[in-house]
Simulated assay, not measured.
Amino acid sequence: MFIKSTTLALALLLGTGCSHVTPNYDARFGDAVRDARKKMTLNPDAGKDGNPIAGMDGRSASESMKQYHESYKAPPPALNVINIGGQIGGTAK
């Protein structure tokens, strides 16, 4: 009986000790996500504007995307960046 009442008292004590923190977190829940979304959105009405975006034309953008996708199919060879006492990209003669 003593163990049950002690366990119950500890559970109630821990529960009341943590209960004052939750409303503070609940009031601001999701603020970080909303703030990050606002910071990532440069122009929320961009879809309504018919003007083209300054930058790449369609053909250049298409080719760069093709090269990007191809880079995952056949990645470029790895280079020896830390070159201690050797030659870069070749064998000794």
Rank of each mutant, 00 (worst) to 15 (best):
residue 30 G to D: 06
residue 75 P to R: 02
residue 68 Y to D: 12
residue 53 I to D: 04
residue 53 I to Q: 11
residue 65 M to I: 12
residue 32 A to F: 07
residue 31 D to M: 01
residue 77 P to Q: 02
residue 72 Y to W: 02
residue 51 N to C: 01
residue 42 L to W: 11
residue 76 P to C: 05
residue 42 L to Y: 10
residue 31 D to S: 13
residue 71 S to M: 01
residue 54 A to P: 05
residue 65 M to Y: 09
residue 73 K to Q: 12
residue 67 Q to W: 08
residue 50 G to K: 03
residue 38 K to H: 10
residue 44 P to I: 01
residue 75 P to D: 09
residue 63 E to L: 06
residue 41 T to V: 03
residue 34 R to Q: 10
residue 74 A to P: 03
residue 38 K to W: 09
residue 70 E to I: 07
residue 50 G to I: 08
residue 61 A to I: 07
residue 71 S to G: 04
residue 50 G to P: 08
residue 64 S to Q: 15
residue 44 P to N: 01
residue 67 Q to K: 13
residue 63 E to D: 10
residue 61 A to F: 15
residue 38 K to A: 13
residue 55 G to N: 06
residue 67 Q to R: 11
residue 50 G to R: 01
residue 32 A to T: 08
residue 77 P to L: 03
residue 53 I to G: 04
residue 54 A to G: 09
residue 62 S to L: 08
residue 58 G to N: 07
residue 48 K to A: 02
residue 30 G to E: 02
residue 65 M to F: 08
residue 37 R to Y: 13
residue 68 Y to V: 06
residue 36 A to I: 11
residue 29 F to C: 13
residue 57 D to R: 00
residue 41 T to Q: 06
residue 33 V to G: 14
residue 52 P to R: 02
residue 35 D to N: 15
residue 65 M to R: 14
residue 58 G to V: 03
residue 51 N to F: 01
residue 44 P to W: 01
residue 33 V to P: 07
residue 48 K to I: 02
residue 50 G to N: 04
residue 68 Y to K: 06
residue 53 I to W: 00
residue 46 A to Q: 08
residue 75 P to C: 03
residue 35 D to Y: 13
residue 31 D to T: 10
residue 65 M to N: 05
residue 29 F to T: 10
residue 29 F to I: 15
residue 42 L to M: 11
residue 72 Y to V: 06
residue 54 A to S: 08
residue 29 F to G: 09
residue 38 K to Y: 08
residue 40 M to E: 12
residue 59 R to Q: 12
residue 57 D to S: 07
residue 42 L to A: 15
residue 39 K to A: 14
residue 69 H to S: 12
residue 39 K to D: 14
residue 31 D to Q: 05
residue 42 L to H: 12
residue 74 A to K: 14
residue 57 D to G: 07
residue 32 A to L: 13
residue 47 G to H: 03
residue 60 S to A: 11
residue 49 D to G: 05
residue 66 K to C: 07
residue 33 V to L: 15
residue 65 M to S: 15
residue 47 G to V: 05
residue 70 E to N: 05
residue 34 R to K: 12
residue 76 P to H: 13
residue 65 M to V: 12
residue 49 D to P: 00
residue 71 S to A: 08
residue 29 F to V: 15
residue 40 M to T: 09
residue 44 P to D: 00
residue 72 Y to K: 07
residue 52 P to I: 01
residue 73 K to S: 09
residue 57 D to Q: 04
residue 31 D to Y: 06
residue 42 L to N: 02
residue 54 A to I: 10
residue 36 A to T: 08
residue 54 A to V: 12
residue 39 K to I: 09
residue 66 K to G: 06
residue 62 S to H: 08
residue 58 G to Q: 06
residue 31 D to W: 00
residue 74 A to E: 09
residue 77 P to I: 02
residue 76 P to Y: 11
residue 72 Y to G: 01
residue 53 I to P: 01
residue 46 A to L: 06
residue 77 P to R: 12
residue 40 M to C: 08
residue 57 D to N: 00
residue 64 S to N: 13
residue 71 S to H: 02
residue 57 D to C: 07
residue 35 D to G: 09
residue 58 G to K: 10
residue 32 A to C: 09
residue 52 P to H: 05
residue 63 E to G: 03
residue 43 N to C: 13
residue 53 I to H: 05
residue 62 S to T: 10
residue 59 R to C: 06
residue 60 S to C: 09
residue 33 V to Q: 14
residue 73 K to G: 03
residue 71 S to L: 04
residue 64 S to L: 14
residue 61 A to R: 03
residue 36 A to Y: 05
residue 75 P to G: 04
residue 71 S to P: 00
residue 43 N to R: 11
residue 67 Q to N: 15
residue 48 K to E: 05
residue 32 A to E: 11
